[in-house]
């Protein structure tokens, strides 16, 4: 199977096999008009199997959420067919509308169109808490 290389854009490599569709949704890639390739179950020396996403456009995209979904993902920024930058991912300090608060007593359960904001509370244990009610994320 052949997928053309990216000339200028972003390649997300070393995605844990099976997680590419979740990333597609989190990053709202369905809204892009450029070419987006999702390659699943690629053989990988490091992971056994991995997914890859290729986005054929330079977009001002906030990739912080990837650090929460899978901190092992490699972000390759491609310019003129070459890797211009490899980014390492950290756990983001804040997640907006990625996690949803399940506490029925939280204002997020009642207020219309409120952003669900979770803040990193414990880096070591990777615990996020709702900024409104401090409930721990269970996702």
């Amino acid at each position: 199977m052949n997928v053309d290389g990216v000339n200028s854009g972003i390649v997300l490599d070393h995605i844990q096999a099976g997680k590419s569709m979740a990333i597609y949704r989190y990053l709202h890639l369905d809204k892009l008009e450029c070419c987006v390739a999702i390659i699943k179950n690629v053989k990988s020396g490091k992971l056994g199997r991995k997914d890859i996403i290729k986005i054929d456009a330079e977009l001002p995209m906030n990739l912080d959420v990837l650090g929460y979904i899978d901190p092992n993902i490699t972000v390759n920024v491609i310019k003129n067919g070459e890797i211009a930058e490899k980014k390492r991912l950290d756990l983001p300090r804040e997640l907006v509308n990625i996690l949803h608060c399940k506490n029925p007593r939280c204002i997020t359960s009642a207020e219309q169109e409120i952003d669900h904001i979770f803040r990193l509370d414990d880096l070591e244990k990777q615990i996020y808490r709702c900024v409104y009610c401090e409930t721990k994320s269970k996702e």
């Binding site: 506490n103 204002i107 359960s109």
Partner: peptide
């Protein structure tokens, strides 16, 4: 004062 948690922050 509000019954929902986080309402004053909002």
């Amino acid at each position: 004062r509000h019954p929902k948690e986080g309402a004053p922050l909002l």
